[in-house]
Structure formats: structure tokens, C-alpha cells
Design a protein around this nucleic acid. Structure first.
Length: 281
DNA sequence: TCACCGTAAGCCTTCACAGA
DNA sequence: TCTGTGAAGGCTTACGGTGA
């Protein structure tokens, strides 16, 4: 559906063709991408350079492409501006139907470990969620360093699960601040008395060498760059540049290290039985 | 000439760190 | 101890430049 008439230049139309191919591959995996995520896939494919200028160019191009009907509005999502819509129901049977669809037991209740997945990047949350939903793992998106409020609330969650071994799987950029964030999280959680094992599952230097994602120049104005460049040189890498299937496999394998699948399935079966009982009543 | 393109600035919050 | 700077997220808006 065309809302605005936009006259694109030939080069822009050629790039939009490539973008449509990328969006189609995400659609087949039931993933809605963010602008940021799409941008890094274009960089990873070598179609554009990884610069602020290119990012803003893509941002403007996609805005126009959606208004002109070339790109489907449903293909791209903005996760930062969500309306707060009150829950309403048609009638009581509708409420019961919705409630039964939401019904889930705590499938980790009989596990040895309590696991959460944390990331600094909101852009990858649509890639993460199919796996974390599958295994009922909580996800925390920090958008950079976490806030005091978020740290306090998270520490309370871990303290509530202190009868288990608490594991925090972390996904962040391989850059001066990104590498510092998991250290920061561990230290700040322990200030609240939460005993959490923070495990960085990505992006690691080994993964950089294995998957060869596009590199960026290290931001020298970052106060942590001096220490970083002594170890890794003057390049850094973004975690969202990894292909979605690679990220999903990485997350799933990491969760499965701490999950007793047999016990997990026992709770699932109880859940299904409860739902059957609910239908009979 | 006009529509599009490129670029800069701004929005908003929280935190870390260097330097004065 | 205080101040300034920069990091993350995903855009939007405004303005000057450029191509069709």
C-alpha cells in the first residue's frame, strides 16, 4: 500500500532489491527485524560500509520504502516505542480462553540451575526470543550498561532462586565497553548479595575468528579503548552482525548445558494434563 | 526545478571513567 | 568530589546539496 509517492534513484532501487531478499529470509524464520539488525546484515553481506553515514542513509531509505509500499510495514519493528494498551475481554468465556492459552507452570522448578539470558542489544531480542520462549528462559535487555533499578530488581530474582545455581548467559559486543559490561553486571549483582555466575557466550574473540563478522574501528574516545587495544588491536565487532541461525544455535546449546531435559518434560506433561482437566470442567 | 539525498542534531535514561 | 564525555537503543526532523 502506497501512502507517499517517492521517486527513488536507480542505486537505491537496486539496494532495496537486496534488502527485500534479506527481509524475506527473516520472514521465513518468523523473525521481525529492527532497522539496526537489518543494517548489520547489509554490512555483513558487504553491500554497504559500516559507518554512521550509511546507517542513516539506510534508515531514511527504509522509511521512504515503507511509505511508498516497496517494503512491507510488518517486516520491520521498532521495539522502543510500544503503546501501553489495557487488557480487555469480550466476556468471561473469552477471559477463560485467553487464560488457558497463557497457562504455564514453572518448568525450571525442579532444575538444579536457574538461568537467565542478558544482552546489551535490543536489536537481537527477536532472534533470541524464539529460543528463550522455547525453554522458558527470562531475557533482560540492558541497552548498554544496566540501570540501578534494573540491577536491584534482577538481584531480587536471583536471590529468590538462591537455592539453585544461578547462571547468567551474556551476549554483548566485542568492543571496549561491551567486554566490560559482563564484569560490571557480575560485580553489581554481588553488591546486592546475589551469587550469580556470569558467562559470556558471545561475542568472543574465538567467534570473531570463526565467523569473521564485519569489523569496526575501535572508538578511541571510549575510555576503555586503551586497555582493549593492547589486547585486541584497533578493531571491534558487533554481536548482532552474527547470522540469526548462528546466534540461535549458540543460545540453545548454552541453555541446554544447564537444563535437565527429562525433568523439564515432566513439568510440561503436568502442564498439558492441567489444561486437559480445565477443558473437561 | 523539484524531489530526493546526505548530514547533523536531537530525543531520553543510566552508568563508567578520566581529569580537574 | 565534581564535571564533562561517551556508550547503548531507533528513529525523526531540518536544512543544504545534488541528480534527474
Amino acid at each position: 500500500m502506497s501512502i507517499r509517492k517517492v521517486k527513488f534513484q536507480r542505486a537505491s532501487l537496486q539496494l532495496l532489491d537486496k534488502i527485500k531478499n534479506i527481509l524475506e529470509s527473516y520472514k521465513q524464520k518468523n523473525i521481525r527485524v529492527t532497522l539496526r539488525q537489518l543494517y548489520y546484515q547489509l554490512v555483513a553481506s558487504g553491500l554497504i560500509l559500516n559507518t554512521d553515514k550509511q546507517y542513516k542513509k539506510i534508515s531514511g531509505l527504509l522509511t521512504n520504502a515503507r511509505y511508498s509500499g516497496i517494503i512491507d510495514w510488518e517486516a520491520i519493528e521498532d521495539r522502543t516505542r510500544k503503546p501501553n494498551i489495557p487488557n480487555t475481554f469480550r466476556d468471561v468465556p473469552h477471559l477463560l480462553q485467553v487464560a488457558s492459552q497463557c497457562y504455564q507452570l514453572n518448568r525450571w522448578s525442579n532444575q538444579v540451575y536457574y538461568v537467565e539470558l542478558w544482552t546489551e542489544k535490543d536489536a537481537i531480542s527477536s532472534v533470541i526470543s524464539p529460543i528463550t520462549n522455547k525453554y522458558q528462559v527470562s531475557v533482560v535487555v540492558n541497552r548498554g550498561y544496566s540501570s540501578a533499578s534494573s540491577m536491584y530488581e534482577s538481584a531480587q530474582r536471583f536471590l529468590e532462586n538462591s537455592n539453585k545455581k544461578c547462571i547468567l548467559l551474556y551476549l554483548g559486543d566485542h568492543d571496549p565497553s561491551g567486554l566490560d559490561m559482563d564484569r560490571d553486571i557480575g560485580e553489581r549483582l554481588s553488591e546486592f548479595g546475589a551469587n550469580v555466575n556470569v558467562i559470556r557466550i558471545g561475542l568472543t574473540f574465538n567467534q570473531v575468528q570463526e565467523y569473521n563478522p564485519p569489523r569496526n574501528p575501535t572508538k578511541l574516545k571510549d575510555t576503555r579503548s586503551k586497555k582493549y587495544s593492547k589486547i585486541y588491536g584497533f578493531n571491534c565487532w558487533e554481536v548482532d552482525a552474527l547470522k540469526p541461525e548462528v546466534l540461535q544455535e549458540l543460545i540453545e546449546n548454552s541453555i541446554l548445558k544447564y537444563l535437565d531435559l527429562e525433568k523439564y518434560k515432566l513439568v510440561q506433561e503436568r502442564e498439558e494434563k492441567d489444561l486437559e482437566d480445565m477443558k473437561l470442567k
